[in-house]
Design a protein around this nucleic acid. Structure first.
Lengths: 232, 232
DNA sequence: TATGTTTGACAATGACGTATGTCAATATTC
DNA sequence: GAATATTGACATACGTCATTGTCAAACATA
């Protein structure tokens, strides 16, 4: 016969509402997760360390996330979201030609990766090893980047001028080229200047355009089946 | 006061010498390791499961390897060694022009990756997350592939015709393109025909050549820094 | 001030994996 | 055939970590 414990509710605590406090804690955990995952990698990261970094106790971890993997997914989505936004912001004002757009997007990409050392490990390495579900998430995300790229390519080169190329495959190849270059660049301590890295990748983009259809690029002889003359 | 226990030695057991038996066990562990690492990934693999798969007990595991990480490194070296050998074997008899060599090497690469599902995960994914030491091993190995590629590129296009490109960066980009395409291809269940994947990557190679030097006939106006123009 | 709420520090539990150890069965050498 | 080596199956100790639980202090409300 009790059940009548008035159940008061504390609507605000230290000036902020319960909902907002919880959201803040979640955000702090994501930030701390990015730090720890980015520094030691997912598999060496412990819930305890993440909580310590976030200045929260384990209880609050499980308030927002079912487990370490769920936090990783949240971190990943947060970081890719940011990156996508930055790249779109860089792309929008760029002149609408292949070289300029490539350089704008790539500059943002490589600069971001260099300026936030956590990104590479989280976005390009660990994400494939966390779990099948996170792996699928990463494929979708990488695929979305490739899709964006493909759309751009397709808009520059109409279907009849693609020389039998599968722009989907090409896009995935280019994304992979960027990923590996980021890793190589980072591993070498970012020795090459940003412009140099960007330029070389941009040339990859431009070369493709030139080879296939040569819209605004150095014209190529567009003969049927006429590829690089095979020695003979 | 004993010490004189004749310390007999069993030179052969079931017909094979001790050294060879141990080498066989090591080989079985490497094979089993490739299976287990390739199927579930390094971090989900346990020493017990690997031993079970190798039909050996844990004791023999530690006879050959200090820990799981050491086994992974051995597996990695074994697999990359094989792959390198296959690719070299495919490259040697190929006509010495960019397109043909690219296609020969790439066909071997993509076919190998498709035919042995363990490779992708071990060579392109897990290797970066095992430990710092294994990570360095992977950089060296990937770097060696890139180096090989770069040497080829450099031999086709002499320095004065590279349009300010850093062939080292380009090579790493191309390696990354291959890696990501393998992953994309595998993830999609190898739907696209092998020839199609190879063709699209080969075009990436050729396009670069065409863009930089036009055709593959460098016919270099043999400037000062003359190179071996591999072409007859 | 009294009562219930929110928080932080930390303990308890349980699962899991590595690395080493035990012991009996089998093979080999003398 | 006796003594030792080798093997295979299994057990044990040890540590780490995820996850839940306890408790008291700080805070908010009436």
């Amino acid at each position: 016969m009790t059940e009548r414990t008035t159940r008061r509710k504390t609507s605000r605590f230290r000036g902020v509402a319960a909902e907002e406090r919880q959201a803040q804690r979640r955000a702090m955990l994501i930030e701390a997760g990015a730090d720890v995952f980015g520094e030691h990698g997912f598999h060496a990261a412990t819930v305890r360390e993440i909580c310590k970094r976030a200045k929260l106790t384990e209880r609050y971890f499980y308030e927002s996330f079912a487990n370490r993997e769920a936090l990783f997914a949240a971190v990943y989505e947060q970081l890719t979201q940011n990156l996508r936004d930055e790249m779109v912001a860089a792309l929008l004002p760029a002149p609408r030609d292949v070289g300029a757009m490539a350089r704008a997007g790539l500059t943002t990409l490589f600069a971001s990766m260099r300026d936030d050392p956590r990104l590479m490990r989280i976005l390009f390495v660990d994400v494939f090893t966390v779990s099948d579900e996170v792996d699928r998430l990463s494929r979708r995300t990488t695929g979305a980047f490739a899709q964006l790229l493909q759309t751009l390519v397709d808009s520059f080169y109409p279907a009849d001028r693609r020389g039998g190329l599968d722009t989907n495959l090409i896009a995935h190849g280019l994304v992979g080229a960027c990923m590996n270059l980021v890793m190589y660049w980072a591993y070498g301590g970012y020795k090459e200047p940003l412009e140099s890295v960007v330029h070389n990748v941009a040339v990859l983009f431009e070369a493709l355009g030139a080879y296939v259809g040569g819209a605004e690029a150095p014209a190529a002889p567009a003969g049927p089946g006429r590829r690089v003359t095979r020695r003979r």
